[in-house]
Design a binder for these strands. Structure first.
Ligand code: SF4
Ligand code: SF4
Lengths: 134, 134
DNA sequence: TAATATAAGACCGTATTAGTCGTATTTATG
DNA sequence: CATAAATACGACTAATACGGTCTTATATTA
């Protein structure tokens, strides 16, 4: 309940790892997975998403790997979650992208009041950047 | 991701319903379920938990039902979640009650920084009371 | 005694999440 | 040019959580 997914955690761990070192330095999914004892294939997929979204750069081939593409203070946790989960973090489905398909939507009396909580969550996730994680 | 469960939502809807009316007024699970088009049995179980925790009072028998036992401004959302889920809302399993069984616990580098986020979430959920939901 | 309500817990089906596998592609290097 | 090491990508599987249902017991009032 309200927990970050493992994918997000793995992503944060990897991003933090990159942020700790010299900017632009390249790391392979393999070495990160080994270092933090995280399933390689799963981490790889996460990194691919982050790469596709431009958060990290990727280079293929024998000396390839991933490198941080942004400054840590520019990387909001909310953004990272959105990329990895492929949807914005929400407190209730009706606050998700085009999510008016809650069975109860019309009679729901807590939707509007909950909006304030959603806003505050957004603020929290936006104000927390990779810099704070380092 | 980060979403409140249906059980919690149903609980909040019911509590709000009670809070909207006269203090001490009795409502049956059935009428609330009908009014908000929510599955009766599920709501019933939620109300039983809330009752057991003293948030609402329950009276059995033919004219029985549930009634709010506290003032809305004394009822934190964090508390309601804890009761219904039977565990505190956490951002990661390692912040749950006795939750050091994360496979990665020892090597995890984000646990500590995430603590700040957990604290802020706590604050958010504590500062939001039933009064704000009404 | 019948009707109506809560109490409690087992049960089930589905959706989500976590993790795996296979295969293709890119690229440095001997 | 062959090989090794890396990313890319999608299908697949396993485990778990979630939402919902069913059954039976108990209490209370008319
Ligand atoms: S409409 Fe109400 S019940 Fe449905 S998702 Fe939004 S808040 Fe939850
Ligand atoms: S230890 Fe790290 S990975 Fe494990 S639950 Fe806590 S934060 Fe997530």
């Amino acid at each position: 309940m309200l927990q970050l997914s493992k994918k997000v955690e793995y992503g944060l761990i990897a991003l933090r790892h990159m942020a700790m070192n010299q900017r632009g330095q390249v790391f392979t999914a393999k070495e990160i997975a080994a270092k933090y004892d995280v399933p390689y294939e799963l981490l790889a997929k996460v990194l691919q998403k982050l790469s596709k979204a431009g958060v990290i750069t990727s280079t293929q081939g024998i000396h390839g790997g991933y490198a941080l593409a942004r400054k840590p203070n520019e990387l909001q946790v909310s953004h990272i979650i959105s990329i990895i989960e492929e949807e914005k973090p929400t407190i209730a489905e009706c606050y998700a992208e085009g999510g008016e398909d809650c069975q109860i939507f019309n009679v729901c009396t807590i939707r509007k009041p909950l909006g304030k909580m959603q806003q505050n969550l957004n603020l929290l996730l936006e104000n927390t950047t990779l810099e704070q994680i380092v």
